[in-house]
């Protein structure tokens, strides 16, 4: 309220001393113009971040691709950047990345759908209000902690049932990553389901449908693009997630989709190279950016697709 008073005083002051008024107004207009410029600069600075990312990835990987042909990069199935006869088949890393992300989705899609249907169609508002903050807490766990959990808890646990599972494997980090993206996919799908107008549900109930049938035959089809968006964005997170795989998936670049064995993902490779203190400008240093640009393009495609789908469900209702 002191703020309100100060404006009143400022204004009254200028009314009663007419001579000062013009000077005051000019000063105020100047302040407003400066403030506006600063605020705009801050907003524009966020664009510079994207420009910076694209600039660094393109320039550094341009010198990488002057040594390695893009064809070899995309078709070779060996990734041996520090060997004497270095080979750079990025699909080696991509195969492990997609395997882990696939396992994560295989867990997160059914679990996320069940949770979203429960929260949107069954849970009472009180329960929903308690559960959503809890899901946020789950999202706040540092990923390196999940990495610890994957390698020293989930892997030994799985080895009881699957004795042939390696100490480093793709299954455990994949499952843990599924847990990690579950809160996100569940809450985005739930938002999409809740955006479905009540009238559609009531039409279903008027036909004598059960809640389950309303959810399965009315709500899910109506919210499908939003739900798809949730899982595409979840996939993007799983592909870009670093610490879980860096800790638990091992560091051997193997081409293949076997979840029982360890293999380096794109992100794990970047971490592994960064730990090794690379000489600036060497081919191994540049290969990090070559791998980085592939990761950036994959996640960008998923993100654009996800945002597009999400916008579509918003426009319908």
């Amino acid at each position: 309220m002191t703020n309100a008073a100060s404006v009143v005083i400022e204004v009254q002051h200028n009314r009663s001393f007419g001579g000062a008024s013009e000077k005051f107004l000019r000063r105020r207009a100047m302040q407003a113009a400066i403030a506006r410029c600063i605020l705009f600069a801050a907003a524009a600075a966020s664009v510079l971040v994207t420009v910076g990312i694209v600039y660094v990835l393109v320039t550094e990987s341009a010198s990488f691709f002057s040594h390695v042909s893009i064809r070899d990069f995309l078709t070779d199935t060996q990734w041996t950047p520090v060997f004497e006869n270095a080979r750079f088949g990025v699909m080696t890393l991509v195969s492990a990345t997609l395997t882990v992300a696939g396992i994560a989705l295989a867990f997160a899609v059914p679990a996320g759908m069940a949770l979203a249907i429960y929260l949107s169609e069954y849970a009472r508002p009180g329960i929903r209000e308690t559960v959503k903050p809890f899901l946020e807490l789950l999202e706040g766990v540092p990923t390196v902690v999940y990495g610890f959990f994957a390698v020293l808890f989930v892997t030994p646990l799985l080895q009881i049932f699957l004795p042939e599972l390696s100490g480093f494997n793709l299954l455990a980090p994949g499952l843990v990553m599924g847990i990690m993206i579950l809160p996100y996919t569940a809450s985005v799908s739930e938002d999409a389901m809740r955006a479905v107008p009540m009238g559609l549900r009531e039409a279903g109930y008027a036909l004598g449908y059960s809640r389950f049938r309303v959810a399965a035959q009315v709500v899910i089809p109506a919210a499908l693009s939003g739900i798809t968006a949730a899982f595409i964005l979840g996939m993007s997170r799983a592909v870009g997630e670093t610490m879980v795989v860096a800790v638990a998936a091992g560091q051997n670049p193997n081409f293949g989709f076997d979840p029982m064995e360890g293999a380096a993902t794109i992100t794990a490779y970047i971490v592994q190279m960064a730990m090794g203190d690379l000489p600036h400008g060497s081919i191994a240093y540049q290969s990090v950016f070559g791998a980085g640009i592939v990761l950036f393009v994959i996640t960008l495609i998923f993100n654009v697709l996800g945002f597009y789908m999400r916008r579509r469900f918003r426009e319908v209702y």
Partner: peptide
């Protein structure tokens, strides 16, 4: 909204190069 979806390690590459 796009920056929110860029993997954190890509920011690391930005910092390393720039």
């Amino acid at each position: 909204s796009n920056l929110a979806g860029v993997p954190s390690i890509i920011y690391g590459l930005l910092a390393l190069g720039l």
